[in-house]
Design a protein around this nucleic acid. Structure first.
Length: 588
RNA sequence: GCAUCCGUAGUCUAAUGGAUAGAACGGAGGCCUCCGACGCCUUUGAUGCAGGUUCGAUCCCUGUCGGAUGCACCA
């Protein structure tokens, strides 16, 4: 269904036209002076120059045309030329009633659904997830759910880091520790063992050790680089080790992401694009794009109008090995072949912006991406500690994501375990549920591109603009609805009446904004807009709730109408938090 | 050095070029015989600085100061 503001703008546009002005001037927006009006139109001022008339004259003429509109209950022209509007109660409630019947609360599905690949998560195999992986997972998951809800075909790909130097480092370290393993025996032709020669926790220790060594030991680093190249060339024993690492690591990653309510459609990695690389490189050479510079094979991507110098995209290092430019390009090619996507969205740390700028340009120039495929970089900022510096453990190390989550869950448990309505078991699961909401809302309520401060006490607070506050509001509504059912009441959206006071009308207006809010949030890939919306909606509900005795109301139709209003509010809140990637308990 | 992004109340955060810059936390004060007071209502307080474009600028442009980040064989 049409967005409310669209309808209002059309109505206003007709009035402008009838008064002899351009209908486009009739754009209506939400009032920024709620004390004066609910909606406003500033078209008279915009048109003043064009028509060489005082804005107030235009505004007056337009207001006259709206004398008997069914949409507005009040239209006033105010100096210097504002048109202040109030909505008709019946029009508003009809709109909301219609919306409650629609499949997606009135959000229209796109005429041409897009195929969108979202690249997020980006964990490295053999390394546990740490706090640096949180934002990509949380933001990417929200964007995926939003676009999917909007009606697009969305494919979420975790894009594992499984092909770079870290694999060579692990192989090299393993060889030093256990040189007797068949994987390192060049003459071995039999089948390699099914069991991995290491456990998950060993693996998680091997990588940092090897990484540390490579920084001080030149020889070790050279070996690791060689091992990386050998692996990429397909050396049999190395591939077998790699497979072990992958199996162990992915099983663990899946478990961790599941705890975060994050799930991927594809578990592809850099390695999966490998088979496209040789042909891609050849074609780049053949087409004259790639040339050798300082021993490496590169493609120029600089443009004349660049203010800054954009280094060329590196296709192959001087030792012939692929690097992240290469795999990212080959991955674009792979996705083009597999899905012909209309859009590929990268949810990546914003520090990688230059890299992706290079890759996108190169992909366009050399034809890895179709011309009509848009490549979007959704860069996110750093999660900082209270000191304003990147989040660390007390000891100054990198904090594991699982520790962060258990920390916030434990604190949440302490807060809610005092609630006697909850059993011990229920308190545990509820704590985990609310903690996840606190964590995700704390992250998503900020604009993705900005750095933000991870403040655990603020996030888990039930007061203010937080996840728990949203959940609390939902739980409160559920509690009322349950009582109503216990009294034998039935909930039906048809019971919606017209608003009878300001706080109720405000709640109606908040609800009516759902479709335009979500459309904007999807368009701008901005989950924080969904957060801002549900916060406003929860506030509007709480204000209304405070003023209205619902269950004791004697007028049955009034009561049923309020119940319907509550039910719709709850449905929309729950819909939104599902898009953000968390859920509400029954009690808390 | 060059470049990019960001500077909004004490803190944190929002605002397709529109009126008196919107919230949250904190501070001050009030509201439970009543559907969950983890709530609600008052109140306090901000666009780094200097110019320009515009009828109108937090937003666009220029300069300046401050912060973050990036600048080919790591990802």
């Amino acid at each position: 269904m049409k967005k409310l503001l669209e309808i209002l703008s059309e109505e206003m546009g007709k009035a402008f036209e009838a008064a002899g002005y351009d209908a486009a001037l009739g754009r209506v927006t939400i009032s920024n002076r709620p004390d004066l009006c609910e909606y406003q139109c500033n078209g008279a001022m915009a048109g003043a120059k064009q028509y060489k008339k005082a804005p107030i004259m235009i505004a007056n003429a337009v207001a006259e045309q709206l004398a008997d509109t069914a949409v507005f209950s009040q239209v006033t022209a105010v100096a210097p030329g504002f048109l202040n509007l109030k909505l008709s109660d019946t029009f508003l409630s009809e709109y909301v009633k219609q919306m409650s019947r629609e499949e997606k609360f009135g959000l229209e599905s796109p005429e041409h659904p897009k195929t969108i690949v979202i690249d997020y998560g980006g964990p490295n195999v053999a390394k546990p997830l740490h706090v640096g992986h949180l934002r990509s997972a949380v933001i990417g998951e929200a964007v995926k759910r939003m676009e999917r809800f909007a009606g697009h075909k969305v494919i979420g790909d975790v894009h594992l880091g499984d092909w770079g130097l870290q694999m060579g480092l692990i192989i090299t370290e393993l060889q030093e520790r256990k040189p007797e393993l068949p994987y390192f025996d060049e003459s071995f032709t039999g089948e390699y063992p099914k069991e991995a020669p290491f456990t998950l926790s060993e693996l998680e220790e091997i990588y940092p050790t090897a990484s540390g060594k490579s920084k001080v030991d030149e020889e070790f680093k050279a070996k690791a680089l060689q091992a990386t190249a050998d692996l990429q060339q397909g050396k049999r024993g190395y591939r077998a080790i790699w497979k072990h690492i992958m199996d162990i690591s992915i099983a663990d990653l899946k478990k961790n992401y599941e705890n975060l309510k994050v799930d991927f459609d594809l578990w592809y990695g850099e390695s999966d694009s490998q088979k496209y690389i040789p042909e891609m490189v050849e074609k780049m050479k053949r087409d004259g794009y790639a040339y050798v510079s300082n021993g490496a094979l590169v493609v120029d991507v600089a443009r004349e109008d660049d203010k800054k110098e954009i280094p060329p995209c590196m296709i192959l290092k001087s030792d012939g090995a692929a690097m992240y430019d290469t795999t990212d390009l080959a991955t674009i090619l792979q996705r083009t072949i597999d899905f012909q996507p209309d859009s590929i969205i990268y949810v990546v740390d914003k520090r990688q912006e230059l890299h992706f700028e290079q890759v996108f340009r190169c992909a366009r120039k050399t034809g890895q991406a179709a011309e009509n495929t848009e490549l979007k970089f959704l860069g996110f900022g750093t999660m900082n500690g209270k000191d304003g510096k990147p989040f660390k453990t007390r000891e100054g190390g990198v904090m594991r994501l699982s520790s962060l989550i258990s920390q916030i869950t434990d604190q949440m448990y302490e807060k809610i375990s005092g609630n006697e309505a909850l059993g011990a078991e229920e308190a545990k699961t509820t704590a985990a549920q609310v903690a996840l909401a606190a964590l995700k809302y704390g992250d998503l309520s900020n604009q993705a591109s900005k750095d933000y401060v991870f403040d655990i006490d603020k996030f888990i607070s039930f007061e203010g603009d937080t996840g728990p506050y949203i959940l609390y509001t939902i739980v409160r509504i559920k509690s009322i609805l349950n009582k109503y059912r216990e009294q034998g009441g039935e909930i039906s959206m048809d019971a919606l009446t017209t608003p009878s006071n300001d706080s109720e009308k405000d709640l109606y207006m908040q609800l009516a904004q759902f479709n335009s809010m979500l459309e904007a949030a999807c368009e701008e890939l901005a989950p924080h807009k969904v957060c801002a919306y549900i916060y406003d909606l929860a506030n509007a509900f709480n204000r209304f709730y405070h003023e209205t005795r619902i269950l004791t109301e004697e007028d049955a139709s009034k009561k049923a109408g309020w119940i319907a209003l509550l039910a719709l509010t709850k449905d929309i809140l729950e819909c939104c938090i599902d898009l953000l990637g968390f859920s509400a308990p029954e009690k808390m």
